[in-house]
């Protein structure tokens, strides 16, 4: 997802016998559905895992602006351009909400950004694919933001208060993103044969990477089991992916587009769509930094940060000057 394969640093799920009194009381609060707040006692592994998960999520929002930024100057109409700009501005906002949530855990935003810029911190694999046509703006809103919503709605109920509150804000804004994407796809699908072909091409390229966003099956993962116990992960990767496929296939049918998966078929007995094998070698390769755009994305972020330094410093110098005058 926006946070993929988050490490807990543990080799086994913590059992009641492993826990001291503090940790047992902490787990009991989570089991009772009571939110953990910033100043409450928490196990070090919970704190560190959350920092990894929330910051990865924040980095994804920030880097996620880049593939869309590619089309701002080439949007087909002024209205589409304004909508795209508003959407990209939301992504920046989502990144900021999430960095703030991470900061409550005792880490600074500048430290988190430094980890992103050095390549140490990860962001979602999906943003390392190129946006080759205007239809990609539609496919991203529809499929990528659609998948993000499926992942984020349960996180509104997660155990960590600041994270859950950030997710509630994000989810409120995210359905605009998915709908504007589908609206672009609708316009193209109802347009000329060339426009419809463009929409189909975007679906062909974004379908599999979108399914990969949820991460590999985590049925046997210790990290996921521990995160579930802490209630910072509420459904398995496979469950969320299935939900995405089930809701998206009928939407593609309405557009008159074909999902690029010959194995896709509806199972009337289970009420779910069955789908083909995902190419996990591609996913791992992108995570390792070898996707089509990994290097370019990171370079763009680092350049933006470095070239903005004089401006951040100037604002600080101005603030310092005025506070000295006041003193």
């Amino acid at each position: 997802m926006y946070a993929q394969m988050v490490e807990t640093g543990l080799n086994a799920v913590r059992s009641a016998e492993d826990m001291a009194d503090d940790e047992r009381a902490f787990q009991a609060r989570i089991d009772a559905g009571i939110k953990i707040e910033a100043k409450d006692w928490m196990p070090e592994a919970y704190r560190k895992t959350l920092i990894r998960q929330i910051s990865q999520h924040a980095h994804s929002e920030i880097v996620g602006q880049l593939p869309e930024g590619n089309w701002v100057t080439r949007a087909p109409t002024l209205k589409r351009k304004s909508i795209l700009l508003a959407k990209i501005q939301d992504e920046a906002g989502h990144g900021l909400y999430l960095y703030s949530a991470a900061e409550t855990l005792g880490v600074s935003r500048d430290e988190l950004l430094a980890a992103l810029h050095s390549g140490k911190a990860k962001y979602s694999s999906i943003f390392n694919y190129p946006t080759l046509s205007w239809a990609d703006m539609g496919a991203i809103g529809w499929l990528v933001d659609g998948s993000a919503i499926i992942n984020q709605i349960p996180l509104c109920r997660c155990s960590y208060g600041p994270y859950s509150r950030a997710m509630i804000r994000v989810c409120k804004e995210e359905s605009f993103h998915a709908r504007q994407g589908y609206d672009i796809m609708l316009a193209l699908a109802r347009g000329t044969p060339e426009q419809k072909a463009m929409a189909q091409d975007a679906l062909n390229r974004w379908w599999w990477p979108s399914l990969m966003m949820f991460g590999p099956s985590d049925a046997d993962s210790v990290n996921s089991a521990q995160s579930s116990k802490w209630r910072i992960k509420l459904f398995s990767n496979d469950e969320l992916r299935q939900r995405m496929v089930d809701q998206t296939v009928p939407q593609a049918e309405y557009l008159g587009l074909t999902i690029p998966d010959p194995a896709l078929k509806f199972n009337a007995e289970t009420g779910h769509y069955e789908f083909g094998e995902i190419d996990w070698a591609e996913f791992h390769n992108v995570l390792k930094g070898n996707g089509p755009c990994n290097r370019e994305r990171l370079r763009t972020r680092v350049t933006a940060w470095e070239e903005g330094e004089w401006f951040r410093d100037a604002l600080q110098a101005y603030a310092d000057k005025h506070s000295q005058k006041a003193a």
Partner: peptide, 23 residues
């Protein structure tokens, strides 16, 4: 509603406008 970073109070109000009152 949340928090943000800013060098001074005036920028904090400007940033809050952009981050927390877009709708």
């Amino acid at each position: 509603v949340g928090s943000l970073h800013a060098p001074d109070a005036e920028m904090a109000v400007n940033n809050a406008r952009d981050v927390y009152t877009r709708r």
